[in-house]
Amino acid sequence: MKRREKNAVPRQKLSFAKVMRRDYPLWLFLLPGLIITFIFSYIPLYGVQIAFRDYMPTLGFSGSPWVGLKYFKQFFDSPYFFTTLRNTLIISVYSLIAGFPIPILLALALNAFKHKHYTKVIQTVTYAPNFISVVVMCGMLTLFLSPSSGVVNKIIELFGGEAVNFMAQKEYWRHIYVWSGIWQTMGWNSIIYFAALANVSPDLHEAAIMDGATKLQVIRHIDLPCIMPTAIVLLILSCGSILSVGFEKVFLLQNPLNKSVSEVISTYVYQVGMINANPSYSSAIGLFNSAINAVMLIFVNKIARKGAGISLY
C-alpha cells in the first residue's frame, strides 16, 4: 500500500477500490500469461525436489521417498562427471573466446567502412545464416564435410591432400562446433554493437581527425571505448551461461565416434532422463548445472562491478 502511494504522489491519490476498478482489465490481460507461466515454469521449479527424492510417478513430486544427496553423490562419483564437466567447459570457453570478439570486430569494420551500399549487402548476407534452423545447419555440416562427396574434401583433394572423415574424428569436433556457430551468428550478434556505434557522436570523430588521428586510431581510441559497456554486459551474460552449452546442436552433431569430446552436461541430462528413464538422477545433474551457472553469473558480475563499474543489477 505504502509503496503504491509513494509512486502515485504526483497524481491524485486513489483509493484501492478505485484503482482496482480502473486496473481490473489489466489483470485480465495478464491472466493467461500468469497461469501458463505458473504451470510450466513454477510447478517444474517445485518439481526440482525430485533431485533429492526417488521419484515415483504414482507418488508425485512431494510424495516420493526422500533420499537426500544420493543422486548428487552418484553423479560426482561417476566417470561421466569429469568428462561432461570438462567437455562442457572446454566447448563454452572456446566458443566464448573465439566467438565474443568477432562480432565486435565486424561491427567496428562495418562502421568504419565508407561505402554504405556495400555495407548494407554485407549486413544482409551475414544476418541470413542466423535464420537457418539448427537441424539444417547440422545437415549442411554433414553434407559439406562428408568424406566421399563433401565439398570441403573435394577442395582438399584438389590441392593434393587426402580426404578427411571430419565427423568421425574427435579432434575436429570442437572446431567444427565452434566455428560453424560463429559462421551462423557473427552477423546477427554484431547488430547490437553496430547500433551502439551509431550513437557515437560524429563530433568526436571530427575532432580526432582534425587533430590528425588516423582511421585506425579513431577506432582504437573512440569507437572501441564507446561500445565497451555494451560488450561487458554481454560478456557477463555469456559467462552466466558458461555451463549451459545448448543441447540442440551438440545433440545433432553427436555420434558414437566423437562422444568422448561431445558429451556435455545437457546431452547427458537428456540421455539419463529420457533414454535411461531415471528422472531423479537427471534432475540432480540439471540442478547442479543451474547452480554453477548462477554462481558464475554472480561471480563475474562482481568482478565487472569492481573492475569497470558495470553491473547487471
Binding site: 507461466t37 504451470i39 510450466f40 515454469s41 513454477y42 510447478i43 517444474p44 521449479l45 517445485y46 518439481g47 526440482v48 525430485i50 513430486f61 545437457s266 541430462v269 537428456y270 532422463g273 529420457m274 528422472p279 537427471s282 534432475s283 540439471g286 540442478l287 548445472n289 543451474s290 548462477a294 553469473l297
Partner: peptide, 17 residues
Amino acid sequence: YMVTMFISGGLIPTYLV
C-alpha cells in the same frame, strides 16, 4: 517473470508437468 528467466526447473520436471 524475471525469476523464470534466470532459473528453470530443467528438462525432466518440465517434461513431467
